[in-house]
Design a protein around this nucleic acid. Sequence first.
DNA 1: CACTTGACCTGTCCGC
DNA 2: TGCGGACAGGTCAAGT
Length: 285
Amino acid sequence: MPELPEVETIRLGLESKIKGLKITDVQVLEPKIFYGDCIQLIGQTVENFWRRGKVLGINLSNNLSLMVHLKMSGQLIWVGKEKVLGGHPTKDINSKMPVKSTRVIFTFSDRSKLYFNDQRKFGWIKVVENSKLKVDIFLQKLGPEPLTDEFTIEAFRQNLLKHSKSSIKSAILDQTVVAGVGNIYASEALFLAKIHPEEMVKNLTDQEISNLHHSMIQSLQTGIKKGGSSKTHYVNAAGERGYFLEVAYVYDRENQPCKNCQAPILKIIVGGRGSYFCPNCQSKD
DNA sequence: CACTTGACCTGTCCGC
DNA sequence: TGCGGACAGGTCAAGT
């Protein structure tokens, strides 16, 4: 599910809600997905938030960080308490939580709660010492952050070289090439750059690589602006859906007219993943 | 070594 | 209405 824009949307939302609060309780309902000792979290203050690719990081006051990966169906939903004038906050604003897929529940000093839901149990939460983040096996492998200066056209081209024999769609889904692009934004970026998803990396011209570099950044930024993509599971920290798919050019639009040329959008499988494209705008030579 | 497939899980949707 | 199969935003291990 969540790709970079969805995780970034959650990061921004959570930051505004739980920064500065103290963790008073952690309930791990599905031990398989929780790595580390949840007791270490009790009593710690939530300090700041970061994101690397599709991973959300939360720094705590005792030099520990929580790393969260939502994989396909993960959600992080914060539920506050209704403020009663002159009294204590008691009632949940959103009483739907927890749900069947709730795997971990964090409780904070103001009695608000953060629910980690994940229907498919692919996602995970890890407790890591801050000093060990730089050698974390998952973070270490990630390529450049696409919305920072480190993601240059030249860095992109160099990383693509290692995948010259694969399709460009598979290559940009590889998190070592660029961090945070997933199936939705890969399809969208290829459309904007007018590149067929099955095009071999080695056949791309410098101009195409440059165009794709630009269109990946553009798609991700639009994704953030629209609050992410909600096909089935994704909601932000407040439990609200995102609207990127309403402006998407190709993703999940099989047989619908191309917004550029009216030709029907096609769906094919590339590298085992469903891929949407316009056969007219994205012709293979 | 490089690319493809299956596995990890659960739920939904579609065709019969 | 029920049942089986395909499929879903990601990543890793095993297989070719």
